[in-house]
Amino acid sequence: EARLWKARVPKKPSSQDADISPGQRDEAVRWLADVHRRLQLYPETICLAVSILDRFLATVKARPKYLRCIAITCFFLAAKTSEEDERLPTLRELISSSSCGCTRSEMLRMERIILDKLSWDLHTATPLTFLHIFHAMVFSCKAVHFNSGLSG
């Protein structure tokens, strides 16, 4: 069991500029949360974006200077997966409202890399999925307790 837990701890990068540090990752996530708030999208989108980002960063070694481009592209992919078609921000909107400093072609190229590295497996359970399940469970438990309290 110890090994199971150990494997989840992110590796310490050997040198700061060679790989993205956990702190930089957290900063990118906070920045994405800001973008998300401004665009007023579904909570599913930000959760999925973070999940895609983490899974991608776990498979590749990336330089910190690409982090913003990676993060905003993960966000774009998450939005495409979970938003309604009519609420989907366009690439142009996303670039201007996030001021990520990337160009369209950079983002499109990054999109292909991310899809390829994750072999198109974008859908996954996120913390929000579990929250939904627990929420439903708490509610159904409440109802059962309430009813048994009445009958007992």
Partner: peptide
């Protein structure tokens, strides 16, 4: 597509893979 991979394809593939 101007917008990269079409969202319909993304949804179709990632759902079917599961």
């Amino acid at each position: 597509h101007e917008e990269g991979a079409p969202c319909t394809a993304i949804r179709e593939v990632s759902l079917l893979k599961n």
